Simulated scan of single mutants.
Amino acid sequence: MSPLGGIALKLVSVFLFTIMASLIKATSDLVPPGEAVFFRSFFAMPVIVAWLALRGDLSTGLRVKRPLGHVWRGVIGVSAMGFGFAALGMLPLPEVTALGYAAPLLTVIFAAILLGERLRVFRLTAVGLGMVGVAVVMWPRLSVDTLDQAAAMGVAFVLVSAVLRALAQIHIRRLVATEETSAIVFYFSMTATLFSLLTLPFGWAWPGWTAAGMLVAAGFLGGVAQIFLTTAYRFAEAAVLAPFDYASILFAILFGYFFFDEVPTATVLIGSAIVMAAGIIIVWRERQLGLKRGQARPSMTPNG
Results as ranks from 00 to 15, higher is better:
2 S>R: 09
13 S>V: 03
18 T>S: 12
18 T>G: 04
25 K>H: 02
25 K>M: 03
27 T>D: 14
33 P>I: 11
36 A>F: 07
45 M>F: 12
45 M>T: 14
46 P>F: 12
47 V>M: 10
49 V>Y: 05
50 A>D: 04
51 W>G: 13
51 W>C: 10
53 A>P: 01
66 R>M: 11
72 W>Y: 15
79 S>I: 09
81 M>Y: 02
101 Y>I: 03
102 A>H: 01
108 V>H: 02
109 I>W: 09
110 F>M: 08
115 L>V: 03
115 L>T: 01
119 L>M: 07
123 R>E: 06
128 G>V: 07
129 L>T: 14
130 G>I: 08
130 G>Q: 03
130 G>F: 02
131 M>P: 06
134 V>F: 10
137 V>H: 03
144 V>E: 09
148 D>Y: 11
150 A>P: 10
155 V>K: 06
155 V>P: 05
160 V>T: 14
160 V>G: 06
161 S>C: 05
166 A>W: 07
167 L>T: 05
179 E>D: 09
184 I>P: 00
185 V>Q: 01
187 Y>V: 10
187 Y>F: 15
197 L>I: 13
200 L>Y: 14
201 P>G: 09
214 M>V: 02
221 L>A: 06
222 G>W: 02
225 A>K: 05
232 A>Y: 02
233 Y>W: 08
237 E>H: 11
248 S>W: 01
253 I>N: 10
257 Y>N: 00
257 Y>V: 00
264 P>H: 00
268 V>Y: 03
269 L>Y: 06
269 L>T: 11
270 I>L: 15
272 S>K: 12
272 S>H: 13
276 M>G: 13
278 A>R: 12
278 A>M: 12
288 Q>F: 00
289 L>V: 13
291 L>N: 09
293 R>G: 05
295 Q>R: 15
297 R>W: 14
301 T>D: 14
304 G>S: 15
